[in-house]
């Protein structure tokens, strides 16, 4: 992990309320792998006080860059939208345990709900690089908020999109779309796929149930309010089976879906 200054190279609103920021930070880009995050100070003032965690969206080791993709949800992210190219951001990372990709993996499924696509694009790039056949399911509220469809297509992934208002692709949630897919491809577990998901809590719960039923190994990237980012403050607790808590920042943010006690966690957490 490094505590370093990253230079904003580019910062663009790619959909209403959704921003992509390219950061130059050679040390972090060199060490990072899919599923990890950076912990960023928004300003040198004390309000907002705490750092904000952002999934690493893309890693460009050659140019020493990383990208983050974020949705404006509050004071911190709102302030961050003002950062112009050239601005130096105080960044701490890469942090956390990311996705585990088995070296013999042949097929993968990616499920992204809303801004949950953030950590999954760099994972998709990694999977394709390793020759893993990757299917991608992207869900959003409406057509204009479908993120990264083209990026995944350019990688050569098979991409399906859903919208909750039916304005594009499948009419329904991404889990509805995925369930339909599974029901018409019941032999899917024969290829021993791995599934990687990130999205809202309700999506995680559904995906966890479906993957158990269809015997698919599933990893989820969780989100929690965080303070330290390194496992010392115990603020970002998630309840796992056995009645204990794990730290999203240090033990995760990626967990096996089997490990998480889905019924015991507050719906409010994301």
């Amino acid at each position: 992990m490094f505590l370093t200054e990253a230079t904003v190279i580019d910062h663009l609103e790619i959909a209403s309320g959704y921003y992509r920021m390219i950061l130059e930070t050679p040390k972090i880009s060199c060490q990072a792998y899919p599923g990890q995050f950076i912990h960023t100070r928004i300003s040198d003032q004390y309000d907002p006080l705490l750092r904000r965690p952002f999934s690493i969206h893309r890693i460009d080791r050659k140019r020493g860059r990383i990208e983050i993709l974020y949705r404006v949800v509050g004071k911190g992210t709102h302030l961050l939208t003002k950062a112009r190219p050239g601005y130096k951001l105080d960044v701490f990372g890469p942090l956390g345990n990311g996705f585990k990709v088995d070296r013999y993996l042949k097929t993968a499924i990616i499920i992204a709900g809303g801004i949950g696509v953030a950590p999954l694009l760099t994972l998709g790039e990694e999977l394709v690089k390793r020759g893993v056949s990757t299917r991608v399911f992207i869900g959003a509220k409406t057509r204009g908020l479908i993120l990264c469809e083209n990026e995944f297509k350019e990688l050569g992934c098979e991409v399906r999109v859903s919208t909750e208002d039916g304005s594009s692709g499948y009419f329904g949630t991404v889990t509805d779309m995925f369930r339909d897919f599974l029901l018409s491809n019941e032999d899917i577990s024969g290829s021993s796929p791995s599934l990687f998901a990130c999205g809202p809590y309700s999506m995680f719960r559904e995906v966890a149930l479906l993957t158990r039923r269809f015997n698919i190994y599933c990893q989820v990237s969780l989100e929690e309010r965080m303070a330290c980012g390194v496992g010392v403050c115990l603020g970002c607790a998630v309840r796992v089976k056995g009645g204990v808590y794990k730290r999203v920042c240090k033990d995760g943010p990626v967990f096996s879906a089997e490990e998480v006690a889905w019924n015991d966690n507050s719906q409010a957490y994301c």
């Binding site: 907002p48 006080l49 705490l50 004071k75 911190g76 929690e224 309010r225 965080m226 303070a227 403050c233 115990l234 603020g235 970002c236 607790a237 998630v238 309840r239 808590y245 015991d264 966690n265 507050s266 409010a268 957490y269």
Partner: peptide, 9 residues
């Protein structure tokens, strides 16, 4: 420890 959420700004 306590249930989540445990912190807020």
């Amino acid at each position: 420890g306590n249930p989540s959420p445990r912190i807020c700004e």
